[in-house]
Design a protein around this nucleic acid. Structure first.
Lengths: 109, 109
DNA sequence: TATTATATGTAGATTATCGATATATGTCAA
DNA sequence: TTGACATATATCGATAATCTACATATAATA
C-alpha cells in the first residue's frame, strides 16, 4: 500500500460496499476504481480482494453473477439490502473512530 | 473496543506517542487518558498496551524510568527525539489515509 | 477482612492484509 | 506469429496487530 497497510485494516470491506452502492462492478474494476478515487492511496492487492469478496458474499452482503463484456466473462458483484444496512453501520462506526482520533491528536490539554 | 477493533489497527502507536508528546505517563494512565479523550471510543486493553510499549521502547521511540507517586512505584514512559519524528510521520500518514477514505465515501460519481 | 481499583505483565488465538504463485485470455508491438 | 504485457480471478502461507484469558501484586474502600 501507499500507506501503512495496517491503517487500512477493517475499512476495506466498507470501501468495497461503498463502490457497489453506486453500481455493480467486477473485482479488478474495484481495485482500479479505489486506486483512482483515493489518488493512489489505496492500492488493494488481488490477494486481499478476492478472498474478501468471497467472504462478503458468504455473509450475504453481496451477490455475484457472470456477464460478458468486451469479449470477456467477468464476475460482477452487487450489493444486497443486507449489504446496504451493513455499510450504513460501518460508515457510522468509521465516523465515530475518525472523530475520536482527531480529538486525541488535536486536544488542547 | 467500543468500535470494531480492526479500525484501530496501526493507529494505536500514534495515539500513545501523541499522549507522551504532552507529558510522561505510565501505562495504566495512558489507557484511562485515551478513554477519556476519545469519549470511550478507545478502550485499550492491558494485553495490547504493555507489549506495544515494550516494542516502542525497543525501537527507541520511548524511554522508561521508574518513579514513586502516591506511594506506588510506576513505570513512566517518555517520548524520544526519534519518537517525535515517528509521530510526525504517522500523523501525516493518518491524514493521507483519512482524506482518501472520505473521498471514497463522499465521491459524487 | 473481603472486594475493588490500580498496575504491570505473558501466552495463545484470531483476523486482516500481504507477497508469492498459479492460471487463462486479450492486445499490441516487434 | 510470437513474445510481452495488461487484464482477470484465485489460493496459500507468512506477517502483524489486537484480543481474551490468565497471572501477579499493592492500595483503597466497604
Amino acid at each position: 500500500m501507499a500507506i501503512d497497510r495496517s491503517l487500512l485494516s477493517g475499512s476495506t470491506a466498507m470501501l468495497l460496499l461503498r463502490l457497489l452502492e453506486e453500481r455493480d462492478m467486477y473485482g479488478y474494476e474495484m481495485i482500479e476504481t479505489l486506486e483512482q478515487k483515493s489518488q493512489n492511496v489505496f492500492t488493494l492487492k488481488a490477494g486481499t480482494l478476492y478472498p474478501l469478496l468471497h467472504s462478503l458474499e458468504e455473509k450475504g452482503l453481496l451477490t455475484c453473477y457472470e456477464r460478458e463484456a468486451d469479449g470477456k466473462v467477468r464476475k460482477y458483484y452487487s450489493i444486497t439490502r443486507e449489504g446496504r444496512k451493513n455499510l450504513k453501520a460501518r460508515r457510522e462506526e468509521w465516523q465515530e473512530y475518525q472523530r475520536a482520533v482527531v480529538s486525541v491528536l488535536q486536544t488542547a490539554w
